[in-house]
Design a protein around this nucleic acid. Structure first.
Length: 376
RNA sequence: GUGGGUAUGGCGCAGUUGGCUAGCGCGCCAGAUUGUGGCUCUGGAGGCCGAGGGUUCGAGUCCCUCUAUCCACC
């Protein structure tokens, strides 16, 4: 299922086999929260820009159109016409990020819909049921993501609860996968490590969930306000306590530099809204760093976003034209930028894999980082 | 031609009985954004307040003249 092909230090080059096909890692999953990559990007586009895994969100799809609707329509793959792997986030993070009115209790979380304000309850069982209805390839455990600034006492209690929730997630997932009418009876479950920036809590939790035999393990609660150094430190300290024979997923991260640093520390799955959100805002990734196409200096720039790039935007259009589209708020502008950014990320992951295959990741990483002067 | 209205940064406007360092929205310029509410936030540049004269300690605000423009009526 998960086979390591090559190692360089802690960095892993592997293949993860699923019912929806194999995933070459390290991999960057392209985020399409509501079963759509924002910016008018179709699944047909995803095939063209080298996407291996699409990521959607349990909470968002539960609220609209409703997981039962998607189940009736044959599951997420059929619904959005994407036959490669899909990972669904559990909704745990939304409890944190959409934290308007919410109450976290042992059984789960009560909160309000961001669409119409109605009350919603979601606990481990509900999250698994929704994800089972969505029939994604990989389901994420329902966790709590404490703020990076949370006090130690709170984090300890929260992490203990997240562990209990993981036990319930596994039981419920096993039950659902065994049901006659379940769409994807081989749905995988990834557990999530938490602990804010407290090394010992992170490590204890990693050891604890490693015993629970999940199909993969994620580091959650990072890139939520702490410094890059703190994040790298947590990854470095925690990854050795997660099963090496299972994929490791760093949730919500990050910049190209973040990814290179995390790959070096043993992470092989990533996802982040940066390429798509920044694309919509005209911030584009290049090998020389990030550029803001809204800047006046690109008004007469006839070059592509990046010389030599083979993405749909760079093959045909100039910076000046795309800048005009963005300023005119034409959807095409956003679309081309998102396509470029996702292509850039997917391509970088491909380069990382090649470098690992050939045992030269360290030099590749250095060269890539040196090139990206403006990278934040 | 007559009567009335309006003239304030690129555009649209606020500016109370005269006291401003002349504001606001959009736009412009730049920056943030990490398991996504196509958002949001943060900075910055840019005005001798149509022109000229007067009253006053003090005028974007009051008076006179002119110019431009809009509306109505001839």
């Amino acid at each position: 299922m998960y086979q390591i092909l090559k190692r360089e230090g802690r960095a892993k080059r592997a293949v993860f086999t699923t019912v929806h096909g194999t995933i070459q890692t390290p991999v960057f999953m392209n985020v399409g929260t509501v079963a759509a990559i924002k910016g008018a990007v179709s699944t047909e586009d995803l095939e063209k820009i080298g996407t291996q895994v699409e990521l959607s969100n349990t909470y968002h799809l539960h609220v609209r159109p409703g997981d039962r609707v998607i189940r009736q329509l044959g599951g997420l793959h059929k619904f959005m016409s994407w036959d490669k792997p899909i990972l669904t986030d559990s909704g745990g993070f939304q409890v944190f990020s959409l934290a308007g009115l919410r109450r976290i209790k042992e059984e789960g979380v009560y909160f309000h819909s961001h669409i119409d304000g109605r009350k919603i309850f979601m606990g481990p069982e509900e999250s698994m049921q929704i994800q089972s209805n969505l029939a994604s390839t990989i389901a994420m455990a329902f966790d709590e993501c404490p703020a990076s600034t949370a006090e130690r006492g709170y984090v300890e209690a929260s992490v203990a609860r997240t562990t209990r929730w993981l036990v319930r997630c596994r039981q419920e997932m096993a039950r659902l996968n065994g049901l006659e009418d379940t769409i994807n009876k081989e749905q995988l479950l990834f557990g999530i490590n938490q602990g804010a920036v407290f090394d010992d809590i992170r490590i204890d939790h990693a050891k604890r969930i490693a015993e629970l035999a999940c199909d993969g393990y994620a580091l959650g609660g990072l890139a939520v306000g702490e410094s890059h150094e703190q994040m790298y430190h947590v990854i470095e300290e925690t990854v050795p306590y997660l099963p090496v024979d299972k994929p490791t997923y760093l949730m919500g991260v990050g910049t190209p530099a973040n990814i290179l640093e995390a790959v070096e520390r043993g992470v092989d799955f990533f996802d982040c809204v940066y390429p798509s959100r920044n694309g919509r805002h005209g911030h584009l990734y290049t090998n020389c760093g990030k550029i803001n196409l809204f800047n006046a200096k690109y008004e007469l720039d006839e070059r592509p976003i990046e010389e030599g790039c083979l993405c749909p935007a760079c093959r045909r259009y100039s910076r000046a034209y795309i800048r005009h589209l963005l300023k005119a708020k034409e959807m095409l502008g956003m679309r081309l930028c998102v396509l470029h950014n996702l292509y850039f990320y997917n391509k970088m992951m491909e380069e990382i894999r090649e470098a690992l295959d050939e045992g030269r990741f360290a030099s590749y990483k250095k060269q890539k980082l040196d090139g990206m002067q403006n990278e934040m």
